[in-house]
Design a protein around this nucleic acid. Structure first.
Length: 241
DNA sequence: CAGCTGATTTCCT
DNA sequence: GGAAATCAGCTGG
């Protein structure tokens, strides 16, 4: 940061519904500063979640220890842990007491590519081998995949539950969101959200049209039960006498 | 390229 | 006990 004033988004930006806030965040710079360095992304894909009114929202069934930050003041980060291994980050909207938020789904890394790459590769580093010990035959991390997807974005930025509640509207915060250096007219698309089984029809996902860092949309498909009901059951479903 | 599956833990019914 | 706002790597066409 060459001493330039850090122009974070004002908190009023988040004092609206998530559906109104979501497209505003596209093109903005989301960054995390740590002792390791700074990683910044331009947001390219986001999703709105409407709290109590949205069955797909973590806040739909009310306040819990996990989602408490969503019910707090706007302009703070709600970071959750899911699938036993991934973090995802939202920015909280609407005044304290309500619970809507915008999930940050993807970004293009513009600062700290090296650090972001190191974080993303942290689990398949040792001698360039995968978890099964096989060589990674030159399959590197494509630049566009560094922060493509909500969990990858968190990994690239080094975001964990420790940042749950961080104030992204505070210039002194290690995690913050600011306006782009140049405001350009953006081509924004809108469509259904990804990875949810309910309310999958509402078009509350927003992205920069044609941007290569945006997730590929696939309709939600429930996973088949993979474990047999009993240890005796055969793969075809029959049970020996 | 599409499709499938293991990983791994928290949360809620 | 099962699903979860996911991802990576493998398989087969």
């Amino acid at each position: 940061m060459e001493g330039a004033a850090l122009v974070v988004l004002p908190r009023e930006t988040f004092a609206r519904s998530a559906v109104e806030v979501a497209p505003v965040l596209l093109g903005c710079v989301f960054e995390h500063e740590t002792p390791e360095g700074l990683v910044a992304v331009v947001l390219t894909e986001v999703e709105a979640y409407h709290g109590k009114a949205d069955p797909a929202s973590h806040a739909y069934r009310g306040r819990t220890a996990r989602n408490a930050v969503m019910f707090g003041p706007p302009g703070h980060a709600y970071v959750y842990f899911t699938y036993g291994m991934h973090f995802c980050v939202n920015l909280v909207c609407l005044p304290e007491g309500t619970a809507s938020a915008v999930l940050l789904r993807a970004g293009r890394v513009i600062t700290g590519v090296e650090l972001a790459t190191a974080r993303r590769a942290a689990r398949r580093d040792l001698a360039g081998r995968d978890l099964a010990g096989r060589e990674l035959a030159g399959r590197g991390l494509a630049g566009r995949d560094l922060a493509r997807g909500p969990a990858r974005l968190c990994k690239a930025l080094g975001i964990t539950r420790a940042l749950d509640g961080a104030d992204v509207c505070d210039p002194a915060s290690p995690l913050r969101i600011r306006w782009p250096d140049r405001r350009e007219k953006l081509d924004i698309s809108q469509g259904p959200r990804i990875g949810i089984s309910v309310a999958a029809d509402v078009p509350w996902r927003f992205w920069l049209t044609g941007d290569p860092t945006v997730s590929v949309y696939r309709p939600y498909a429930p996973r088949l039960r993979r474990k047999p009901v009993s240890a005796q059951q055969r793969s075809d479903g029959t049970i020996p006498l």
